[in-house]
């Protein structure tokens, strides 16, 4: 379980806190989506979990232990991380990218090789065909699958995903979303997933935490948020969605 306790983060020379008094529990095995527009503080919350950002006040606990007490490198290696910009290392092959965390953990070459083959199979990029390629020889969707495989390499219990599908075209994004759902159905990781896309949040999240201007607006399932919005922002979010759907419907009806 990941637990944020009244966490506040102020950046130097910025008056308004990026994240203010956020308290949030992510239960083991669930997928928690952090939903918000840019500047809402959602990515900051994510980075507080693996200490890429340290809180100004408050604490983050994982499985009951304060992350501030952990060795920061060991902590990060024990948490899978998928990046917004994918972040594959261009000087490494696909296989080397996937095996990077096991290598840092000091696994044997043989064990790393077996593990990367398994993972590449898991994300439908057979090692024989893709293992020796370099990142610039992959499509966007393939690269992000490698990113997911890399995050899973050392078999972490937790997975942090920072808008991983944001840069992909709609079709690829939808397919990768489905693949992630299917994959995690088997693996059962605890996932914190950042997005600004309500559709994606509704599709992937067991629960959704809505953030606006650094403050946590409401946490709940999609249904709860829709039926009992607790702030004007959350209500607005769903009203906007309904209007978009209506508008879309009218446009389609007008077609001959």
């Amino acid at each position: 379980m990941i637990e944020l306790r009244r966490v506040t983060k102020r950046f130097d020379r910025v008056i308004v806190p990026a994240v203010e008094e956020v308290t949030l529990k992510v239960h083991t095995g669930e997928t928690m989506v952090l939903l918000g527009s840019s500047g809402s503080g959602k990515t900051t919350v994510l980075k507080l979990v693996n200490r890429l950002i340290e809180p100004t006040s408050g604490a983050v606990h994982i499985d009951g232990r304060d992350v501030a007490d952990a060795d920061v490198h060991a902590l990060r290696r024990s948490i899978g991380y998928v990046f917004q910009g994918i972040g594959l290392f261009p000087n490494m092959t696909v296989r080397q990218n996937v095996g990077v965390v096991p290598r840092l953990e000091g696994w044997s070459a043989e064990r790393i090789r077996d593990r990367t083959e398994d993972l590449l199979g898991l994300v439908s990029l057979p090692g024989g065909e893709f293992g020796d390629r370099y990142p610039d020889q992959l499509s966007g969707g393939q690269a992000q699958r490698v990113g997911v495989a890399r995050a899973l390499a050392a078999d972490p219990a937790y997975l942090l995903m920072d808008e991983p599908f944001g840069a992909l075209d709609a079709v690829t994004r939808a397919r990768l979303q489905s693949e992630l759902l299917e994959l995690n159905g088997r693996l059962g990781k605890t996932i914190v997933f950042v997005t600004h896309d309500l559709f994606e949040a509704l599709k992937l999240g067991d629960r959704i935490a809505v953030l606006h201007e650094g403050r946590l607006q409401q946490v709940g399932t999609g249904q709860e948020l829709h039926h009992t919005p607790r702030t004007p922002f959350v209500r607005g979010l769903f009203r906007q969605l309904e209007e978009q759907v209506d508008e879309l419907g009218r446009r389609i009806d007008r077609w001959p």
């Binding site: 490198h73 917004q84 910009g85 840092l104």
Partner: peptide, 24 residues
């Protein structure tokens, strides 16, 4: 972003240098 990726995966400064920055 590669520097952040390296740190996010748990590389130390030295590992980030030798595995990522220097080769690039």
């Amino acid at each position: 972003t590669l520097g952040e990726a390296a740190r996010g995966l748990g590389m130390t400064i030295r590992q980030e240098l030798t595995m990522v920055r220097l080769p690039l």
